[in-house]
Design a protein around this nucleic acid. Structure first.
Lengths: 320, 320
DNA sequence: GTATTTCTATCGAAATTTTCGATGGAAAGG
DNA sequence: CCTTTCCATCGAAAATTTCGATAGAAATAC
């Protein structure tokens, strides 16, 4: 099957870096003859010369140098694998499924995840982003979730609201008119982009016949607005730079120009949650939590009040 | 030192993919007890449970699944390492140093290198790009070289010339004048970009007091022209798309709007060149060689004739 | 419900591999 | 020229791995 072992390569590496069999033997706590035997064995198995002994010095052959360059990262990875195994043996959590609503801003999330990765280097994070993440589906598919609407789960913590802002490209017709306020009626004639989970045919169908286009990702929604094709409500954090640059401008809506999206952090199963899950939850809350954990009350203003509740409704988030 | 071996992980993998110890034993040509022992050993050494036997089925634990996912690519890489070792043992060439003059177009080069990598998967290519690669330095630092000027080496093969074209940004003042021909005198007042090896202070100094800016890379030269700051002579292939798009335009020079750079392929040491070196040489020639190998004649028009030999001289390539 | 098949765990013996200390010879340094 | 340092090799001892046999547990067949 395998002709060589990682250990043999590791011995070779030690011989090279320490500059000789004897020193390597010392460093490896072995006899010199053992090191000699190991190198000889490695070369025999491969049928290739890796080192040449020139008098008192050990030098790599060309092949040896090339192979050791390849082997070095392998050795490191192998040690990392064993380190992870050791951590998991001591009870570390192997992986953590994190589901987030797509409106949740990525930059602070990844800032937290970076810290998390340092504190839990052996726990792998599987991140799933979902358009309108509800608590029920979140619980099914994740250990920890940032959901749009919770309200019926025990371990729930309110996070800072995400602000959606009605924007359009700076040369969009809606903005070339009077600088005065727009009403939702004014929006009717223009194309709006809505963020809709493509796997959900019902929601998508709910938009038919309207002047909605639906997209699947926040990125696409932003581009749709940026192109001038559509207007839409986009999360403030994702377009702050574009607003500053003047490429996008806020729509001067007399009502509903801003909408708050209430997000909550939910532990899928508080009973079995591992230490890494709990720590990540704490880290997210420390950064984004509102002070104190709210009781599971239905968050106010799920869909902000609207004159017609139709034409101007729902922002990039599809109506229910 | 190391607690486990790649072989143990490989056995674990085989157990999982074949769905049992017995089947794995069969596939590995071992006894079932040996497989059982290996898995037990692996788990003992790690102190972690990787698999659980549920009745007749073998299932990975969460830790086992996580670790095996990490181990799988390691196993593959390890086998690749041994495969390479086998190839090198059979005389394959470990590596090949290829030096090219920076004017040589990269796209066809990498097309050739892709084919090369398929035919010689175990030979690593170290590519060095040098601004004005002469034959002497090339020989010192490479097995194979594409040089600007050869003329005194035995194994030399002429390649297709690279065409330098005088260009500027479409809104550059040189282009907003009359559409009629420019003379080199017209260029005097404008900034030219020259490609100069930064490590060569002499060449750089030779430009002082002129309206030259020097850059280190072709990429930078292109951007300098693209920004409208400079005009310059750039290799045709690297700016073909920009010319098509209209961003850059040719300078209507009455003379010297195009310059040919003669390039040659040189084998540094024909005697000791390995099979991969020879094959790559053949592949490059097949693609880019002029018909037949030319005798080592001094290539004509090293620096194309120029009225003044000064203001308009040298293109992006610094004068000697 | 019982018999049969299929599977893994484990045991002792055998085979293989690895390690060790000792020794010899080659090269470098004093 | 002598001493030191270093690697190759040898035989013996130690450790590891493999094997076949067997026992027990779980699924399947009857």
């Amino acid at each position: 099957m395998h002709k060589t072992t990682v250990e043999q390569w590791q011995v070779l590496r030690t011989v090279i870096v320490s500059g000789g069999y004897s020193r390597a033997a010392e460093r490896l706590n072995r006899s010199q003859s053992s090191v000699s035997y190991t190198i000889a064995q490695l070369q025999d198995r491969l049928g290739a010369e890796l080192v040449v002994v020139e008098g008192r010095k050990v030098r790599l052959t060309e092949a040896g140098a090339a192979l050791l360059r390849d082997a070095a990262p392998l050795i490191a990875q192998f040690e990392a694998l064993e380190a992870r195994a050791g951590a998991l043996a001591k009870g570390a959590q192997a992986s953590l499924r994190l589901a987030i609503d797509s409106a949740y801003p990525k930059r602070p999330l990844f800032a937290v995840l970076r810290d998390f990765a340092e504190r839990f280097p052996h726990t792998q994070v599987d991140l799933v982003e979902i358009i309108r993440l509800g608590a029920r589906e979140a619980r099914a598919r994740s250990d920890l979730a940032i959901v749009f609407q919770a309200g019926d789960v025990l371990e729930e913590h309110r996070l800072r609201d995400v602000e959606l802002i009605a924007v359009a490209h700076c040369r969009h017709p809606l903005l070339t008119r009077s600088a005065a306020g727009l009403t939702t009626a004014d929006l009717g004639g223009h194309l709006q982009v809505a963020l809709v989970d493509g796997r959900d045919p019902d929601r998508a169908a709910g938009l038919s016949g309207r002047r909605f286009w639906s997209v699947n990702t926040l990125e696409a929604a932003r581009e749709a607005v940026l192109s001038g094709l559509c207007f839409g409500w986009l999360p403030e954090e994702t377009i702050a730079d574009l607003l500053d640059a003047g490429e996008l401008r806020r729509l001067p809506l007399s009502f509903g120009a801003r909408r708050s999206i209430p997000l909550s952090l939910v532990l899928a199963d508080a009973g079995t949650a591992g230490p890494a899950t709990r720590a990540l939850a704490a880290m997210i809350l420390e950064r984004d939590g509102t002070r104190g954990s709210h009781p599971p009350s239905r968050p106010a203003g799920l869909i902000p009040p609207d004159q017609e509740g139709d034409a101007g409704g729902s922002g990039p988030f599809a109506p229910e």
